[in-house]
Design a protein around this nucleic acid. Sequence first.
DNA 1: TTCAGGGTATTCTATTTAGAGTACTCTGAA
DNA 2: TTCAGAGTACTCTAAATAGAATACCCTGAA
Lengths: 234, 234
Amino acid sequence: MPDKFRGNLLALAVMVCLYERPMHPYEIVLTLRQRHKEESVRLNYGSLYAVIASLLKRGLVAVVGVERQGRLPERTVYCLTDSGKEEVHQWMADLISTPTREYPSLAVALTFLPVLSPDEALRLLKERALSLETRLVQGQASLQWVQRHGLPRLLWIEAEFLLRLTEAELQYVRELIGEIEAGTLEGTDFWKALHESQELSLGIILSEKAQYPEETGIRAGGQGTAPRKRTRHG
Amino acid sequence: MPDKFRGNLLALAVMVCLYERPMHPYEIVLTLRQRHKEESVRLNYGSLYAVIASLLKRGLVAVVGVERQGRLPERTVYCLTDSGKEEVHQWMADLISTPTREYPSLAVALTFLPVLSPDEALRLLKERALSLETRLVQGQASLQWVQRHGLPRLLWIEAEFLLRLTEAELQYVRELIGEIEAGTLEGTDFWKALHESQELSLGIILSEKAQYPEETGIRAGGQGTAPRKRTRHG
DNA sequence: TTCAGGGTATTCTATTTAGAGTACTCTGAA
DNA sequence: TTCAGAGTACTCTAAATAGAATACCCTGAA
């Protein structure tokens, strides 16, 4: 059970469902949906059946039987095998013990922020802040609702965690807005000048001339790519 | 330029590179790497050429020419078209203004945390906390290095942001560890009992009997799936 | 009565994706 | 001198992915 097949976390969700009892694919979807797991696991039909086929091939799930109701399509019922249970454990352990590099879309956007004008960036960041606030309020309300209805917190920690990340994001966005407005974000002057002239010489956006650390050995990532020396071509 | 094609953020990175000047694909990779953009954009050869082909097909980039050095493979040089520039703007604007649902892998893991025993979970969470601390220290050092070498902060905000998220995650993980150890995480007693008996009746992991909000209208997500009524089958 | 609208359950298909593979060049140490 | 090792530049392929499409069922309002 190498981690080569650990691509889609939906596979884990499927296996955990089958841990409970045998189900057919559509029933798995309904279960996950009903329990709001679609908020932490990306869920869609296209992947579902492919993922199950892959689990079947690898012997992690097995076919229990085939049902049929009227002339609706057949429902193949699957169960978790022993090696499936083992895989669930192993996968969970890896997932928790080892942080992986994630690529939140805002990180990409911030990377290339200078392609937008400061004014535009400011407007858009404020818009985002607003959305985040709404999301936060709704999320908190949702959490409170759940609490009032006696669902133990243990079963909602993922929602709590997601909310924390949202809070952190909002806080950062707010700080950024403040600093751009105040002009205390180092580089803002240049950024403004860039967009006041007609032609964007966007080399600067990727900091063409800037001195980047070429070989520091200091990398934020865990097991990132091997460091590379500088190269020139042409 | 609908957002149907907005799948891979590498496409955005490629276009921003070409904003600067025409390049051939491999040169784009080198540029992004040299400037440490691989830390915020998922980068690999397999996708690169496919992504560029797709941009070409949609008229967002165009072929400027083909070079060749010795008997090395040909280098096709691409440039950004006008509609490519527009698309960069539009995409950036959407990316910043509208938060999307993200699926950090820890969220999934927490969702299914009860499949592991509390002791195991605790051990693994501590391991993660350690990794996160290391990553944090390295990231901070990296940021300081950059600052000392005069790179304006504007060009490093994505790293700052990523670090913030890591901090938030670490903080949450620490709190969780504390609460599990102290037994103040509501549901822990049950969780322990579950793993002390032989057979895991894991229905509870997905909280089979629990009352979920079926139709509250309160959803954390922005434009999530339409709310669904409960269903029963079999 | 009939048919819109929503639920059930899966399949299909065009893209994407990851990562290995290929095939060449250059440098420098033994 | 020769050849390992690193870099250059792209291609290939198996697999995964998203989401539309299919095809059926049921309920209830006009």
